[in-house]
Design a protein around this nucleic acid. Structure first.
Length: 126
RNA sequence: CCAGAUGGCCGGAUGACCGCUGUAUUGUCCACAAAGACAGUAGGGAGGAAAGUCCGGGCUCCAGGAGAAACGGUGCCGGAUAACGUCCGGCGGGGGCGACCCUAGGGAAAGUGCCACAGAGAAAAUACCGCCCCUCCGGCGACGGAAGGGUAAGGGUGAAAAGGUGCGGUAAGAGCGCACCGCGUCGCUGGCAACAGCGACGGCAUGGCAAACCCCACCCGGAGCAAGACCGCAUAGGAACCGCACGCGCCGCUGUGCCCUUACGGGCAAACGGGCGCACCGUCACUCCACGGGACGGUUCGGGUUGGUCGCGCGAGGCGUCUGGUAACAGGCGUCCCAGAUGAAUGGUCAUCCGUCGCCGCAAGGCGACGACAAAACCCGGCUUACAGGCCGUCUGGCACU
RNA sequence: GUCCCCUUCGUCUAGAGGCCUAGGACAUUACCCUUUCACGGUAGUAACACGGGUUCGAAUCCCGUAGGGGACG
């Protein structure tokens, strides 16, 4: 059966720092993916919840560009994280200068490559 | 048609699939209700600047009330407005052939201050070069020199040189006289006023700077939704520093002390308690009033919580129309409900059209790229700044035609 | 979001209407000194964030813009 689990966003600065402290990341042309540690307080396996956060700093552009980059990353996260990611980790997506303008399919492949490189990709059953 | 001035408006459109977040409503769960969770339905979901945070107001809390002042702001006149530094109309000044545009524009005989350098002289001014008169000396003469006096025309300096131009006048000159212009005073007329016009008189007096101090008129308590209120959780009853009235006078009270008395009661005292007044302290700094005060008050640090609900969208609201007003705007009537997030929603992808650019093509067209500035955070009125492209109107000058 | 503050050589700063064509220190360049380096000496390069306005005259006064920094319950 397809493992589609719920996803919620990180809300505390402490959580973002915990993810960044592991040093595990993959830099793609359109985004940066950071991988957090395995959470000890594991949710019940029959109802896994995947945590992720979004970051778009002032280097990316003005408020309009930052919001657009963040929304594109959120759309990809809801499509891919829910199906293909290991829910025992936390994830942080960081926007880059090209995130707002990169073609959607290329940005999607960037994300898939990052998940595979970090060895958290799970092939979804057909 | 060309060139220009000015006012207003728009800020890509449509569809499909998948999402986010409020509101209303229905259902299910929880014994009922409320709250909450989930699901369904309906309808909504960034801007003209949401920006900068430069002004003004609402709202909330703080300050006991009033007044005045300080600081600060505004500054031609009249009006609009909740208010404004905004807007509208007018006036003065400047620019433009014109439509029109710009303008912090009160007071310099209330006082203080500044005006560097240059220049003879910079504010009750001055005599450098000059010009003119008289006397003397030299020289045949033209002329030169010296002493005295007159002058403010000319030169020169400067941002600015004590009215300007012309004529007369004079030894040379000078508002010395006259005409016009400017300036000042007075009067009349028009205007609510700023101001304008006309007339008479004066005979030039009052240099500039107030975005220098200042004077005058008007405005102004402080902080800001991280305001503020509530619920929940949790910790602590802490440390340091600063300030600190407790005074004087009067009264003699069912207190107190001493004396008389068996007692009731009476007398005395004024240390303590009490009362009153003054002083003192606090209520942000001053004054007055009011209230409170007989001992703690204030600030900082340390420690805890980094959750939730309300505030929070019916409003100086939008649209249409009528009336008043030159206008800003005001009023009446009708109609509509139209964002509410909090690591922060208001979208992601695709297709077609639209616009711009590039390439190919004789053309029809095809292919590709791009889509201005910029995103609410309590709300509203302005200002300022950024902005691809487009639409509508009014007016001015020129050319052509009728 | 709200409320404040600051911009002067490469860096830190002085300046308060005219003496500013902007001074000083460190740094830097050239030369002198020294066998050489350092120290020292002489000389030079180098800045008023930007745009308007007031004034005869602006780094200074006023307005606006840009950039940077700080505070908060």
């Amino acid at each position: 059966m397809p493992q589609k689990h719920d996803i919620i966003t990180l809300k505390k600065r402490r959580s973002f720092l915990a993810v960044a402290a592991t040093g595990k990341k993959w830099v793609a042309p359109g985004l940066i993916l950071q991988l957090g540690p395995v959470r000890p307080d594991s949710t019940p396996p029959e109802n896994p919840v995947c945590h992720y956060g979004l970051t778009a700093s002032g280097k990316v552009g003005n408020a309009v560009v930052r919001n657009r980059a963040r929304r594109r990353l959120r759309a990809l996260a809801q499509e891919l994280l829910a199906l293909h990611a290991d829910p025992s980790h936390d994830y942080v997506l960081i926007a880059r200068n090209t995130t707002a303008t990169r073609a959607h399919e290329a940005l999607r492949l960037d994300f898939i490559t990052a998940l595979k490189k970090l060895k958290v990709w799970r092939e979804s059953p057909p």
